[in-house]
Simulated assay, not measured.
Amino acid sequence: MWSWVLHRITGVLTFFFLFVHVLDTALVRVSPNTYDAIIETYKNPIVNLMEVGLVGAVLYHALNGIRVILVDFWSKGAKYQHVMLWSLIGVWVLVMIPGTYFMLERTVSDLFGGGN
């Protein structure tokens, strides 16, 4: 049940990100200076953490979507759904650990080590 709830939450979060992304990208046609100003506000550690969360949400949503498809369309899907859930969690962790490191590397460097 929690995988279902998390799948819905990550889907909604991804939708809202895409909505905001389309809106701020559309600004480039209306006012390039405003677009540049908004993009500049995204360059801070809080937004960087939100980007890590977005990647985690999209990755979970994609992996769980594959699991849902397998449960629905594979004759043995229901039998192995629990194993597939733990497998997707394992893959998610294996991808997110290095992904988070590389996404936060510059932010941590800027905060504690003096960036470029």
Rank of each mutant, 00 (worst) to 15 (best):
M1V: 10
W2A: 07
R8V: 05
I9N: 04
T10F: 12
T10P: 03
G11F: 07
V12R: 04
V12L: 13
F16R: 00
F19I: 00
F19Q: 01
V20G: 12
V22W: 13
T25V: 08
A26Y: 13
L27S: 02
L27I: 05
V28I: 14
R29H: 10
V30P: 04
P32K: 10
Y35C: 03
Y35R: 03
Y35A: 10
E40W: 08
E40I: 11
T41N: 02
Y42R: 01
N44M: 14
I46Y: 06
V47T: 08
N48Q: 07
N48C: 09
E51R: 11
L54D: 07
G56R: 06
G56H: 02
V58Y: 10
V58Q: 10
L59R: 06
H61S: 05
H61P: 00
L63Y: 08
L63I: 06
N64I: 05
N64P: 03
N64W: 11
N64C: 10
N64Q: 15
G65L: 04
R67K: 11
R67L: 03
V68C: 00
I69Y: 14
L70P: 02
V71G: 00
D72F: 06
D72K: 15
F73D: 09
F73T: 10
K76L: 13
K76N: 05
A78H: 14
Y80G: 03
Q81N: 13
Q81S: 12
H82V: 05
V83G: 06
V83L: 12
L85E: 02
L85R: 02
S87V: 14
L88M: 14
I89N: 06
I89L: 11
G90H: 06
W92M: 05
P98D: 04
P98Y: 13
P98S: 06
T100M: 12
T100F: 10
T100Q: 10
M103Y: 09
M103S: 12
L104H: 04
L104T: 06
E105W: 08
R106A: 09
T107A: 15
D110K: 14
G113Q: 08
G115E: 05
G115H: 13
N116I: 07
